[in-house]
Design a protein around this nucleic acid. Structure first.
Lengths: 142, 142
DNA sequence: ATAGCTGCAAATGCTTTGCAAGGCC
DNA sequence: GGCCTTGCAAAGCATTTGCAGCTAT
């Protein structure tokens, strides 16, 4: 169970309410794990394991539902780097990622460190929704 | 069944052999579908459906295996744009993609139309393996 | 002949869904 | 109380694997 002072809990609850989500025990727990330590990159399974280790009662299905609700509400952003698993990022602003394909770890790259220039026009009848840069890395000498 | 002249078939067979793969009926069929019409972006399911409509005998499992063998052999490249489905691109050189998230269609962007500058150093102990830029687009007014 | 392929079906891994029970306002 | 949320289990996809039979060289 998430252990933080009552002010922080109240901030979380207000944040959820502002997003149009009822502050339930599970949502508070997951929001606490996601947002207390700054920027994080999680998969549903990892977040679920953390919640369980934290003595919280949350099912994996609820973790999935919650991650999507948070994403729809703008509290999270999905990062696509693996065709078999979804990653969620607590940093919703524009930025990019390193993805270590061996350890499967994500690292942020500030948006201002990558400049995409001379962008071609999108296909006819479409509009640009977002630009994602993923730099795949592997351990050296391995 | 793929219908092309014997010269083209022989070219395909040699290409497979050069990649260290036995030119079997299934591989010729799939290679024919993939490489005869220039650059293509396919999922396993789409390629399988095409092969079946072409009166070829190929199982979906073989399509999956073949796509990965071709990728390992450098004939294909995997493009990660969806966390639930794998796309394969017949264009293996450096370039980027538009991904229409509604129609799920991929469009190439030549590498020289996108410039990624001031690239930050990769995380300690890792080396860069590749840079992928994905521009997500949606239909206009919808 | 034999090492490599294929097909099927079953297994796997991640994710979603249906529905009854429970919790928030 | 009423509606939203949760949990469980089952279902749903995409993908991989085991193994017997087939095939290219």
């Amino acid at each position: 169970m998430i252990k933080i002072d009552s002010t922080a809990i109240e901030t979380l609850r207000q944040r959820l309410r502002a997003a149009g989500l009822r502050p339930t025990r599970q949502r508070e727990e997951l929001a606490g794990l996601l947002f207390r330590d700054g920027n994080r990159h999680v998969t549903a399974e990892v977040l679920h394991r953390e919640a369980i280790q934290d003595d919280a009662q949350v099912s994996l299905a609820t973790v999935y539902n919650t991650l999507h609700q948070f994403t729809r509400a703008g509290l999270l952003r999905e990062v696509v780097v693996d065709s078999g698993r979804a990653y969620f990022d607590t940093h919703t602003g524009p930025h990019h990622h390193f993805f270590n394909t061996v350890s499967q770890e994500l690292t942020d790259i500030p948006a201002d460190r990558v400049l995409v220039v001379d962008l071609p026009a999108p296909p006819t009848g479409t509009q640009v929704d977002g630009v994602e840069v993923v730099i795949r890395v592997t351990p050296q000498n391995g």
